[in-house]
């Protein structure tokens, strides 16, 4: 297995050089081009290019393609864009780089290949960051997600002093040791794109090509939604309803996982994913409650603990399934 991996790695690197030379000449022109180039790059490197998960999540890591697939022994390689929601970061579309809804680009490869750093640097070249001109640095940053019961070691990657990505070797998820270890890359797409495109305010960033028939900026697409969601997140979301939904999601998650694994037709099916959906829901509801300012400092820890307990149950269930390597 080890040899085979090295061969894959070598092929990846070989392809990389040619591509880099090709990309160095042309800078991307808009936000979506950066996404497309990342998609093409990681597709060429052999990742399954997935689509965003169809639920509200706080970060790309929550996508089951990362959280759950990091567990168990089966190999895995995926890349995807994930819309991410952080209600407390909403600024009514006024702040140059803070948004309550933004995009992350997520790559996960299990086991982490020996040349993951080189692969990553290749992706920066692919989106027009020439490392002969820029100063790229791997600066210590340990990653921990208290809600997922997960942690890993790695870096934040700096380009000329700006953080452009998170690079993590997962050590634990849902309380389980990751064996093998997954390598995870997370790009904050807006910030990275603003840097590459030389834009100072996110709302001014070209979304599609500036010479398109109907050129659109990021603001054209998202300014109004940022305003609407900021108001709802901070002032209007009904906290009693949110609290009730939190409890419901928690109860449903627990119920799904404690249900008999054998169905009425005699099939044995563990419902790890539906349960995990409820866990994601609970997590997002917690973030909304937090934005509404109704969670005190002490209660905070208790809520995080409740979501973590769900994540742990889901992880326990997933490793009993086929995809979980059982």
């Amino acid at each position: 297995m080890q040899t085979q991996l090295y061969e894959i790695a070598l092929t990846w690197q070989g392809a990389d050089m040619a591509e880099a030379a090709e990309n160095r000449s042309q800078k991307p022109a808009c936000f979506q081009e950066i996404i497309l180039r990342l998609q093409n790059y990681w597709a060429a490197k052999g990742c399954a290019v997935l689509q965003p998960y169809d639920m509200e999540v706080g970060a790309g890591t929550f996508h089951p393609a990362t959280t759950l697939r990091a567990l168990g022994t089966r190999h895995w390689a995926a890349a995807y864009v994930q819309p991410s929601r952080r209600p407390t970061d909403g600024r009514y579309g006024e702040n140059p780089n803070r948004l309550q809804h933004y995009y992350q680009y997520q790559v996960i490869i299990k086991p982490s290949p020996p040349d993951l750093q080189e692969l990553y640097l290749g992706s920066l070249r692919a989106i027009g960051i020439d490392d002969a001109l820029h100063d790229i640095r791997f600066v210590e940053d340990d990653w921990e997600s208290p809600t997922l019961g997960a942690w890993g070691l790695g870096w934040e990657v700096w380009c000329d002093g700006m953080e452009v990505s998170q690079f993590t070797y997962f050590q634990q998820v849902g309380g389980h040791d990751c064996k093998p270890v997954s390598g995870e890359l997370t790009y904050g797409l807006e910030r990275l794109a603003m840097y590459v495109l030389g834009v100072d305010h996110v709302m001014d960033m070209p979304f599609n090509a500036p010479d398109a028939l109907i050129p659109l900026t990021y603001g054209d697409v998202f300014r109004q939604t940022e305003q609407e969601y900021s108001r709802w997140n901070f002032d209007q979301a009904d906290t009693d309803t949110l609290l009730q939904h939190f409890k419901d999601a928690e109860a449903e998650c627990q119920r799904i996982l404690t249900a008999d694994t054998t169905d009425s037709a005699g099939r044995s099916i563990i419902m790890a994913h539906p349960a995990y959906d409820q866990c994601i829901k609970a997590s997002h509801l917690f973030n909304l409650l937090d934005a509404r300012g109704v969670i005190s400092v002490t209660e905070r820890q208790a809520y995080i603990g409740r979501v973590r307990a769900l994540a742990k149950m889901c992880a326990d269930a997933f490793v009993q399934t086929e995809a979980g390597g059982a």
Binding site: P96, N97, D135, R137, C159, G161
Partner: peptide
């Protein structure tokens, strides 16, 4: 003063400009 990790053909001009921009964002 910032310390980069490489020589560049433009004597660090791009790197310095990038750092300056990040600093300006933080200071604003």
């Amino acid at each position: 003063v910032t310390v980069a990790n490489r020589d560049t053909a433009d004597q660090g001009a791009t790197i310095l400009a990038g750092n300056q921009k990040v600093l300006a964002a933080r200071l604003s």
